[in-house]
Nucleic acid binder design. Sequence first.
DNA 1: ATACAAGTTA
DNA 2: TAACTTGTAT
Lengths: 561, 561
Amino acid sequence: MSQTSNSSLEPGLSQETFNDLFNTIGQYINPQDLQGIQTDYQMASPSLHMVDENMHENLELKLECVNVQRHEQGEFSSYIPDQNFSQGSYKPEEIAVKQHPIVCKQEHLSNGLKSSPSPEQSSPQPLIVSNTDFPGRYCFDIGYEEEKVPVTKSVHWTYSPYLDKLFLKMRVIVPFRIKLQGYPSPQTASAHFIRAVVIYRQPEYYRENVERCPNHITKHKDGHHAPKHLLRCENPQTTYVTCPVTGRHCLTIPLGEPQAGSDFVTEMFQFMCFNSCPGGLNRRPILVIFTLECGNQVLGRKALNIRVCACPGRDRTSEEKTESKKRSNNNNCLVSQVEAQGSQPERTSTPNTTPPSTPQVSSSSSGPHTPPPPAEEPSASTSDGKQMPRLIKKRSYPFMSSGFEVRQLNVDRIPFNKKQKTQDEEVFTIQVKGREKYELLLKIKESLDLMDLVPQAQIDKYRQSCPPCGRLKNSQNMQHSENGESQNSNDSQADEVDGPSQSFSQLSRSDSGSSYHSPTSSQQSTGSGGGGGGAGINAVRFTLRRTLSLEKKGHFHVGIP
Amino acid sequence: MSQTSNSSLEPGLSQETFNDLFNTIGQYINPQDLQGIQTDYQMASPSLHMVDENMHENLELKLECVNVQRHEQGEFSSYIPDQNFSQGSYKPEEIAVKQHPIVCKQEHLSNGLKSSPSPEQSSPQPLIVSNTDFPGRYCFDIGYEEEKVPVTKSVHWTYSPYLDKLFLKMRVIVPFRIKLQGYPSPQTASAHFIRAVVIYRQPEYYRENVERCPNHITKHKDGHHAPKHLLRCENPQTTYVTCPVTGRHCLTIPLGEPQAGSDFVTEMFQFMCFNSCPGGLNRRPILVIFTLECGNQVLGRKALNIRVCACPGRDRTSEEKTESKKRSNNNNCLVSQVEAQGSQPERTSTPNTTPPSTPQVSSSSSGPHTPPPPAEEPSASTSDGKQMPRLIKKRSYPFMSSGFEVRQLNVDRIPFNKKQKTQDEEVFTIQVKGREKYELLLKIKESLDLMDLVPQAQIDKYRQSCPPCGRLKNSQNMQHSENGESQNSNDSQADEVDGPSQSFSQLSRSDSGSSYHSPTSSQQSTGSGGGGGGAGINAVRFTLRRTLSLEKKGHFHVGIP
DNA sequence: ATACAAGTTA
DNA sequence: TAACTTGTAT
Ligand SMILES: [Zn+2]
Ligand SMILES: [Zn+2]
């Protein structure tokens, strides 16, 4: 970890290099460190720290959102509601948002790098959602009910104070207690709401959206309007939202009023996939981020460590043992504690560490030990040297695996420790038969890479000058337009966003590039390009066009600096 | 069984009841009995063999036309080709078919339950596909190559003579030897073709269609035109068919000509899902039914016991042990044999029981023991009481298992990189950093490949209609739309039936996002996603649209010259 | 090739 | 609750 922090501070880097560093840092840095950094960001003034990375992406997005808001003012959400469960009651604010999605989007495009107060203010999370606990003025916190049966065999859910982690079965409805120390006055309470977003706990996956697996979406059709959302809330006023820009799913519910005498509100949630679902979470641990918001402000945040599995009891026990060993290795003194607490005794009933005022178990923060997002992987800080080998490995995976093996493609993989490079930089291999195709593809590939080097301003300029057929865009944009007219399809739009948006835009550029050649190419080219349009981009593209030697399988790396 | 047979004989049932009974009967009846029944069917008189064509695809199409003509009678094929691999040569007949697809489809729909001579006559299998071996006049049989390395660690596939079962990894390309004792005369050979259908081995699932799981269909997009088909054949003349009535998937390939001196033709197949895939096969054992057909006659049939898994070697060994124990319990005398044969010695190389004339391993039938479709589960034959539980269990499967592994989305494939072929086309490899770019490039690559399959006339036509900017996009897809505004989705119909939503969304993104250009994606998607509607026609047209592959066929030879 | 992980079955 | 199955990670 020590090393990582150092490396991350270097200034004057190219975009690429920068990104790499960014990612790298995220990989090695430990949770505590991240927390600190993030906090800084939040505090920091806008425009640029981008460099800092934890999230370079985050930063950018946040800024964008802010801009939007200001533009219109209260718009606090770049999310578009997928659907509203509420039978009725749409809040004014929500409506406003829906009506101006396009604006938001546009904002994003043009404001990309603009400065703004603080990311924290805009409710929507940027590419990288903050996982930092932030009690705020209301001492916002989330807790669980005390587990009923002291000794249940097949518990539907169980909370491990030792791990500060909730283990639950898929689709079971679990009560979560939303705690506020000082409840907002009745007048302002209605403007407050709770947002819940699920993110991957491992830095490598921060930017990836958490979504249900195709199997469950497809085979488990229950008519729910937000089939892709992992998290559901039983509250009838729940609004499911999917960010048109990032594609990230979240839900919001109005801030309920505590029952007389209590300082919390209970809301029922359920998770629609296993943590292990192959085409979805794929065994990656997650964090559920709850935020208390009012208008466009985030008043409090709480991250919960959650595991959705088939055998909560079993898995809790085994994880506690594992963690126990880990800790014992690291700190000798704590060993005994671990054993005593975690292993078995507590399993069924909610354990110790229960907060005083309420009977509920408050997740972490209150506990003596059990850091919120404990760094599980020891090896995170290993050397870079490993990274290269990694890439190679990945290549091998594709060959015969089932496809889901862990992680490779999208994700870099396993985070744990070892190494890693950047997320975006996963390396894929495409085999092409025939030299002509190969060369064509190579050019396109290069143009895509080069595109990253073109300043956004130039790109925008290019696009403006580009005729109708080239209009580019990203899916989100598309969406917007849809929204504009009718919001009905939010869901689908948003849901789809996932990775395509960019590709699209990229394509268009690439297309133009390819126009030159034969039928195939011509078509493609047409799609994207438009005749030649603009300048900078085109130039760039063709520039690289390199032909290559002919070796066959040699993987040529076409790396572009 | 005894009891079951009784219940199944009741007359005067409603359609619903009837179907249920039908299935039920299938469940309880034993293989031998089925055989008898089927044999009868086979004997029935044919209706017409009209065609002799080299391209069986043609055959299929023609048949449909026939149906139309008859309107009702000899409907021998209820399958609609999903796509045709054949390159080039479109015959007049095919064109004709294209013009009447709708008719065909309607026929299918209306004839679904009509009575007809015998199921056997019509090439397509009825709801319940026969799993009875039937050598026929050509002594039709399927065998495997001798396993190369005697002791391979991670075998990609291995055949257990003891179990008469092939264990293979998902997506590995495995050579199957199609054996005919007396090869049809050159004149008639062209009218013969091979059909392969995958069915569940357990009677309870006979009537359920075997299809890829949603996860793999969704996450493993490789541009194949028949994404829902579990079984794929490398033969470029492969036609993927999905029965419009039953939804069952199968593929057909022309009967190749044996190499000089051999009595078999080698065809390469691969399975696109694990036997265990959660939303798909869901751990249910399968049988691949190969049939030698000519016109509407089934001349031979062979059922192969196959397991697609991650560790063929391990699983083979464990299954052999299990079977060994089982047999030992039943028959004391055979125990020793089992142990000796199955357990470990044979694992890697193809074992004993090898047929005399050919070096290949002929699956079962020839072997002394090892009944073709051995009932593995003791419970299958047990009392009804158990069966019910069975059903219940199964039901549970589909719902919520977790199933797959995840991740990689598109990439997986690239099969071995090690090898590669090169027929006349050199194979190149491009490495791409970043998933989006990768996916984009992959699509383009596929479109380039597919383009080769589009007749020049169509391409010219397409270009003429295409505006200056070229917006059209990918060759193949474009075509479709061109052909018929309406027909676009035929293959999709069949394929998509099950999990459309996803594909849909994906498609939409690409479409909406870059409606103008996304050709690649949109086309594909449309292809797949189209609503099931206009069936027949669509299907045919799209026939050509196939993508292709990157196989490395180099290793194995493709049998057809 | 071995060991682990985690849903499923009994 | 224990054991098994089976894909994945090391
Ligand atoms: Zn799932
Ligand atoms: Zn699958």
